[in-house]
């Protein structure tokens, strides 16, 4: 196996993992604390990308566009919480799935009406559009390194917020026993709203980071949402550390599987069959990983300890 290719693919896996973490973190908090299944979380990611593309085009600066897109994405999240989601807390999961599924349809079509069906152009900022030469002469896009760095920085900040602050204590307490937390004087609805806004911001951030490398189009969040659910199941519901570990695992396994599995299959099967079998296997790989984790540890790798549900 080519060591340079392996290193580059590891970076690719890390970059996917970091984006997945940003989306999964919000999803796992909302699910863990509010027991609320929010399928529309992927829409938050998509909206972040649309806002960032639009504001970047208007201001001519990626950083300025991002700075405007974040609060706008949070505003959409808060509005959704107040208008729709808040009425579904404590309801049956099926009700929540149906309601948030409806929100996906509504917002996806709304975005299509406002911005049109053509994918939006969102160029990589000029200061990161070059390739960096790594060890061994391999090149890697600077912007992807920027995503990895930015994502890890946000992950560190989020960890500090959850582990070191009073707000973080309330978030963790809420994840294990929201009823008791309320009986001790915390306005749980307000906490939910804050957590929701935080989740919307993280997903929006992921969207604006991903926008320049992926096409900005209405359905861009759909695929990622499924992966994010796999991540939080692997990591353990409600657990930020679990989401981080799960996201990196899924990112690496998916990327390395896509790059090396077909070649591995060629060792045992003829090339023509391997070309068929390899892609099929690699697209199943993360689900196999999820099943394996669930067999070994049904509550995920790092569950929010002692969650009462």
């Amino acid at each position: 196996m080519d060591p340079i290719l392996l290193a580059v693919q590891t970076l690719n896996g890390l970059q996917l993992g970091v984006l997945l973490f940003l989306v999964a973190a919000g999803l796992t908090l909302v699910f863990g604390i509010m027991d609320f299944i929010n399928l529309a979380h992927g829409v938050q990611y998509m909206i972040g990308a649309y806002f960032a593309a639009t504001f970047t085009a208007v201001t001519g600066s990626f950083l300025l566009g991002a700075a405007l897109a974040l609060p706008a994405a949070v505003l959409v999240g808060v509005a959704l919480e107040r208008v729709v989601f808040r009425h579904f807390y404590g309801r049956d999961h099926l009700d929540q799935v149906l309601a948030t599924f409806g929100v996906i349809f509504f917002l996806t079509e709304l975005v299509r009406v406002i911005w049109g069906p053509t994918p939006l152009s969102f160029p990589v900022p000029a200061w990161a559009s070059h390739s960096v030469t790594l060890f061994g002469g391999a090149t890697y896009p600077a912007y992807r390194l920027f995503i990895i760095g930015g994502g890890l920085a946000v992950a560190a900040g989020l960890y500090a917020l959850v582990a070191r602050t009073r707000f973080g204590m309330l978030v963790r307490a809420g994840a294990s026993n929201p009823r008791m937390l309320q009986a001790l004087g915390t306005d749980i609805k307000r906490l939910f709203l804050l957590v929701f806004a935080l989740g919307a911001m993280l997903a929006g951030f992921a969207g604006l980071m991903a926008g320049p490398i992926l096409s900005v189009e209405p359905s861009m969040g759909d695929n990622l949402l499924i992966l994010a659910f796999v991540v939080i199941v692997i990591g353990g519901l409600g657990s930020i550390q679990g989401a981080f570990l799960g996201a990196l695992l899924v990112g690496l396994v998916d990327t390395l599987g896509r790059s090396f599995l077909t070649d591995a299959v060629k060792l045992v099967l003829p090339a023509s069959a391997a070309v068929d079998v390899g892609p099929a296997l690699s697209s199943m790989l993360i689900y196999v990983l999820m099943a394996a984790v669930l067999i070994v540890s049904p509550t995920g790798l790092l569950p929010a300890k002692g969650a009462t549900r």
Partner: peptide, 21 residues
């Protein structure tokens, strides 16, 4: 090489690295 990706896949970093290699 002949590589088939998942339908709807949006990030091709792994495939691009394979092409480079």
């Amino acid at each position: 090489d002949e590589v088939y990706t998942k339908l709807g896949q949006l990030d091709f970093s792994a495939e691009i690295a394979k092409i480079q290699s």
